[in-house]
Simulated scan of single mutants.
Amino acid sequence: MAQKPMTKTQLIAAIAEKMDADKKTATAALDAITDVITEEVSNGGAVTLPNIGKIMCRERPERMVRNPATGEQLKKDADKVVKMTIAKALKESVNE
């Protein structure tokens, strides 16, 4: 059975413990990292998190899609999606 994902509160507590700091400092660090990643990716850039992966924005071209309920073909405009490529180190640590 799958575990529930770690909540933000649990993540902040874990970061504070690893940093030997208080939760306020850990919250500020997490918020700063989130802001930097969001800003960089929304501007079309990419961010590499060592031993975790790479977060990037990718453009998808205009394409034809099908409505599964009616079978009707629709044209979907070009858009952007956020992609994350997982680092080899993380993949290997999960499979140990």
Rank of each mutant, 00 (worst) to 15 (best):
T25Q: 14
T34D: 01
D79H: 15
T34Y: 00
G45N: 03
V65Q: 07
T70P: 00
M6C: 04
M6A: 13
A69L: 10
L74C: 13
G53C: 01
D35E: 14
K4G: 07
E92I: 02
A32K: 07
A89V: 08
P50A: 09
P61Y: 12
T9D: 10
K18F: 05
V65W: 04
I12N: 10
V65Y: 05
K24R: 06
E72T: 06
N67I: 02
E96F: 09
K80D: 02
I33M: 03
A78W: 12
G53P: 06
E59G: 08
E92M: 00
L90S: 07
C57T: 11
K83D: 13
L30S: 05
K24N: 03
I15H: 02
V94E: 02
T85H: 09
I86N: 06
A14R: 15
E40V: 06
G44M: 01
K18W: 08
D22M: 11
R63S: 00
R60W: 12
K24M: 02
T34W: 03
A89C: 06
P50G: 05
P50D: 04
I33L: 08
L90R: 09
R60E: 09
V36R: 00
A32V: 00
A46S: 15
K83Q: 13
A2M: 14
N43A: 15
A28K: 07
M56K: 15
C57M: 13
D31V: 02
K24G: 02
A16I: 01
T7R: 04
D35L: 11
E96G: 07
E92H: 04
V41H: 10
L49C: 09
K80Y: 12
E62N: 08
M19Q: 11
E62R: 12
P5W: 04
E72Q: 12
K76S: 15
A69S: 13
I52V: 05
P61V: 15
M1T: 13
T9R: 12
M6S: 10
A32C: 00
K24A: 06
V82M: 03
R58F: 04
T85E: 14
K18I: 05
A46I: 01
L30I: 00
L74R: 14
A69T: 07
G71Q: 08
Q3M: 07
L30R: 01
V94P: 04
T48G: 09
Q3I: 00
E17D: 11
A2H: 14
I12Q: 09
T34N: 02
T85F: 10
S93T: 12
E62S: 14
T48D: 15
G53Y: 03
K18E: 07
K88V: 09
K76P: 11
I37D: 00
A69G: 04
D31H: 00
D77P: 10
P61S: 15
I33W: 03
A69N: 02
N67E: 04
